[in-house]
Design a protein around this nucleic acid. Structure first.
Length: 168
DNA sequence: TAGGCCATCTGGTCCT
DNA sequence: AGGACCAGATGGCCTA
């Protein structure tokens, strides 16, 4: 049986995402975002000049199809994409820190947040108890709720995953 | 096919 | 003024 992604090695629990090189990540994003337009370009929300009809000026077929958004708006869009990529990167880091089933598909953002909240509550409980994490969790799963803190982390989402943990 | 999830664009608001 | 942050709208993809 494989170990869960987030194990209970408390002494090795310093989250490396605290140290990940944000400057390097940012420069990679710059390269990516400045070169790439959106993967799927939606219809432009800005007004596209209507083709002249009737006896107006001739249509120049060599003209580019759309001027795109104004430069200010385009820059803001790029910043927003970069910001969201940054957030998603943090979500990926968090996904690797919460326990998941071995066969589990990628957690959604909301599931990641909820699971992380429950997991943090559990780790806090373990620290407060001073017990061995393995025996503590096994006891809790066996005996059910015993404290208010356990009520915080003892959600079906987390306890189901904890029951899959291989401790050895 | 409906619903969930996600990326993207956008305009508004707040902060520096 | 410009950037960061946020929420709403929209459309695409995937799954039950």
């Amino acid at each position: 049986m494989e170990e869960l992604c987030g194990s209970f090695e408390l002494e090795d629990s310093m989250p490396e995402f605290l140290f990940w090189d944000q400057a390097d990540f940012s420069s990679q994003l710059d390269h990516l975002l400045l070169d790439c337009s959106p993967l799927a370009a939606p219809l432009p929300p800005w007004p596209v000049p209507a083709a002249p009809q009737g006896g107006g000026a001739e249509v120049d077929s060599s003209m580019p199809p759309s001027p795109g958004p104004p430069p200010q708006r385009h820059a803001a869009n790029v910043r927003e994409r970069k910001r969201m990529l940054n957030i998603n990167s943090a979500f990926d880091q968090l996904r690797c820190r919460v326990p998941t089933f071995p066969y589990e598909k990628r957690l959604s953002k909301i599931d990641t947040l909820r699971l992380a909240i429950a997991y943090i509550a559990l780790l806090g409980d373990i620290l407060l108890s001073g017990c061995d994490p393995k025996s503590y969790v096994e006891q809790c799963l066996k005996n059910g709720l015993q404290s208010q803190q356990q009520a915080t982390w003892n959600t079906s989402d987390l306890t189901a995953r904890l029951s899959w943990v291989k401790w050895d």
